[in-house]
Write a protein that binds this DNA or RNA. Sequence first.
DNA 1: CAGCATCCGAAGCGATACTG
DNA 2: CAGTATCGCTTCGGATGCTG
Lengths: 145, 145
Amino acid sequence: MSGPPANGSEHPHVSPTTTADFPSARGQDVEALVNDLIGRVADKWTMIVLEVLAEHGELRFTQVARRIPGISQKMLTQTLRQMERDGMIIRTVHAVVPPRVDYRLTDLGESLGAAFCGVWIWAEQNLGRIQSARDDFDQRQASRD
Amino acid sequence: MSGPPANGSEHPHVSPTTTADFPSARGQDVEALVNDLIGRVADKWTMIVLEVLAEHGELRFTQVARRIPGISQKMLTQTLRQMERDGMIIRTVHAVVPPRVDYRLTDLGESLGAAFCGVWIWAEQNLGRIQSARDDFDQRQASRD
DNA sequence: CAGCATCCGAAGCGATACTG
DNA sequence: CAGTATCGCTTCGGATGCTG
């Protein structure tokens, strides 16, 4: 890939220290915002919750929890709240007893899910390669004593 | 819900190396492994380094650092090591003085970069929507006193 | 230049207890 | 059921100083 599309808003004051080198000097401010957003979205639990909801459409709290082994109740709540705040999911509270709260993706959330689709596929397809690369690295590391 | 690959059990997933498969925690759930991998890859600095190297091809340490304002030397070193361990980048040490170390993506790293490209585009395109969604949420939250 | 080692405050996170 | 509140441990991560 060649980085973000840069949406045409390039800045003239990106001061290249080396001349005639960077064909794509993009606006640093836009990049910073995108990076910040990526930092929020690129959270382990966020992506997993996203995947679960993308797959099942609408789930209540415990159903989401059951689909994500290893997550604590605290982290699930926190992640769901954050995603709700970012406009990725809709939280529906039913006034019944016992309480029932449903979660589902918004259009925005689904579009992110679609964007992440490629990453999931990549992860599945390259799991083995990463593991062996890691083994190789650790092996070389261990044999330097 | 044009969702992600989601359910690992329904996919042409990996594990061609079917050696002795332990019945316990480690090897039984592909989904768990994918989630683990996602957890590693979904790191803020990892993704930014990935993007920088995808854009520039080959850079030395300080050149990468210059491209990522806000990262500390410690985190950059750490991130680069981790990515090298995962087989995403190649680290070339030139035996010269002053020392020169070049970093570039492997094929695996580039393929991940390609997979993430869609996310980057999404982030740029939906920056505004997330911010206003966040403002709305905070507004509603504040008006409950 | 490209790191590694150390210190230390800040943030993350799980476990537990409690509530409507 | 679906949370909130709190405690305490662990990890993160920046700052600083030192090395080949």
